[in-house]
Design a protein around this nucleic acid. Structure first.
Lengths: 335, 335
DNA sequence: TTGTAGGCGTTATCAA
DNA sequence: TTGATAACGCCTACAA
């Protein structure tokens, strides 16, 4: 297992009889090098199996080409559209992403952020607008573009691409009431300490109140246990509360689970009970009946956030942006 | 927007009246520092808002704490279990992962690899065993542990944690024949140039041949277009071939799509036609009927691969490992 | 237990 | 168009 020592710019420079900086320039395509010299250098670099050391480059140039992306989770389908579109959009510009998972917990988010920051990312995209004080300070102190996503506030750390969870839940509830539903219960997923679930619940509640309705119950699935087992719990809840006519889920996955399990138990949806979700993952459209839900523009948020980062880093713009991508209601089979 | 200059070890050293190396040692917890000194240093570092620069650290120590993970895609649910378990397992040991997508193409894989290698990862986990010559050379030349996953071969680059796609398809087909199915057609997803789909098709074909059966047709969904639209294509195929009694899909997503669309078209599954998948994603169990499929141990592969990397980097073991995690057949509703 | 010296591989800066 | 010099921030090696 004789391991050859790694090849550096210096080795190439010696072989080519030029200085390291010339090699560096040639390999970076810096057009101040004679085509002839460049060709020779490229050839030698290739022959020697040279692999540029981006660590050294990053240290000296203070550019890592890394964008930190902090999400509650990347498991499951909720945030994967967002992460993918970020990755694709930034990939075009030669950036790599490093992902951190906050596990829906701002303390954990801070820990993750503290780790990521040490790698000196050139930018940060982070889900949510509710962070610890230290996290906010950290984000500001980094002096790189920061884009918060998946939420809305008047007072972002830097730029923001999101939507109002509260408003979406509010409007959706109004629309459901318009459709004739009156006796709602609300089901929440694992209570996010990042509190987007809570905002959704509040928006729902406000809409009820505005229409003079009261809530007929609520249930929380404390630790997320997979779609089907959450669904079992909700099936029991639905059976125990026969007066309900609509189960408002603040989380897509439990809505899917509930729909599947209720259907398997022979409950007619939406006739006996309507079920609605929040988020529109792909699985929502393959179940029967397909889920009526709020469609969140995860990919669009990712893409816009990535663009903002890219443009800022390219010096194209200085300004901070606040972008509301809104939401749609996807009327399908469950309500 | 006055941006304070970043704080370095030197700044802390000066403030504490010690040398930078002492600060470095104190902050890394290297137990050669007086508790008193350490406390003082920690306090100052905190007060100054010191953020260690891992780029500099990586350059000098030749350890980046980064593990490169190369997968065909991270969109969708197929590989996400694997990536998550890798991330979790390595996270425990303080490693970060950087992901590259090969898009089911070994040329693209090579390009991705060439980019990742420049960041000097401490290890590599890569899907598949079929790589370009250059990729293999690159992997060897890196002199870091490499684990190939999701496939099987006698001749891995280094370590290997996988299963035989061919064998799984072979055994599954035999089991289906045992169940009484005779008139099979095979449906493939986007033809992977990384050729795992092909191995599955071959295993299926060999089993038929072994039992003296012929294939009743085949169809390829060339570009993956989502579960439901693939399903439409397959629904048409099934309608056009009424003699079939089992549709063998080499890809879970198209199996789900086919099942959903056939069912919506009123075709009785499995009575009129059986449909089986390959891979067992979560969505397979929420459709009706739930999909009979080969259960691949994606999370287990990820975890084992991560462990091998971790142990090798901790110097716990030198040896290369080949691990076959096998597969299970999940008999559910569609066959 | 602490410190000195130097270098990891690259690129910014300034000079030729 | 090319080069010399130094520095990015940290840690290895060796010495005290």
């Amino acid at each position: 297992m004789a391991s050859k020592p790694p090849v550096s710019l210096k080795d190439i420079a010696e072989a080519a009889g030029v200085s390291t900086i010339t090699v560096s320039r040639a390999l970076r395509g810096l057009s101040l090098v004679t085509p002839d010299t460049r060709r020779q250098i490229t050839e030698i670099a290739h022959r020697l199996g040279y692999v540029p050391n981006q660590v050294a480059s990053s240290l000296r140039s203070r550019k890592t080409g890394l964008i930190a992306v902090v999400m509650p989770t990347v498991a499951g389908s909720i945030f994967s559209d967002t992460v993918n579109s970020i990755s694709n959009e930034l990939g075009k510009a030669g950036y790599q992403i490093i992902i951190g998972e906050s596990s829906y917990d701002i303390e954990q988010e801070q820990a993750v952020l503290e780790a990521l920051v040490q790698r000196r990312p050139d930018g940060v995209i982070i889900a949510g607008v509710n962070h610890t004080r230290t996290s906010r300070e950290l984000l500001s102190a980094m002096n790189v573009p920061v884009v918060e996503i998946w939420d809305m506030t008047e007072d972002p750390v830097d730029s923001l691409v999101g939507f109002s969870n509260r408003h979406a839940a509010y409007e959706f509830t109004l629309a459901l009431i318009d459709k004739g539903y009156r006796r709602f219960a609300i089901a929440s997923g694992p209570m996010e300490r990042l509190n987007r679930a809570q905002q959704r619940a509040e928006g729902h509640g406000e809409a009820l109140k505005f229409k003079g309705l009261r809530s007929f119950g609520s249930i929380v699935i404390p630790h997320f246990m997979g779609m089907l087992s959450s669904g079992e719990t909700l099936l029991k809840f639905v059976k125990d509360n026969p007066e309900l006519d609509c189960l408002f889920c603040t989380n897509e996955l439990i809505a899917i689970g509930a729909t599947v399990q209720c259907r398997r138990a022979g409950i007619k949806i939406p006739d006996e009970i309507a079920i609605v979700g929040f988020g529109d993952v792909e699985a929502a459209s393959i179940i029967d009946p397909p889920l009526t839900t709020i469609c969140i523009h995860g990919a669009a948020m990712g893409q816009e956030a990535a663009r903002i980062i890219r443009d800022r880093l390219a010096g194209k713009t200085e300004e901070r942006k606040i972008l509301d991508v809104g939401f749609d209601i996807a009327w399908r089979g469950t309500a």
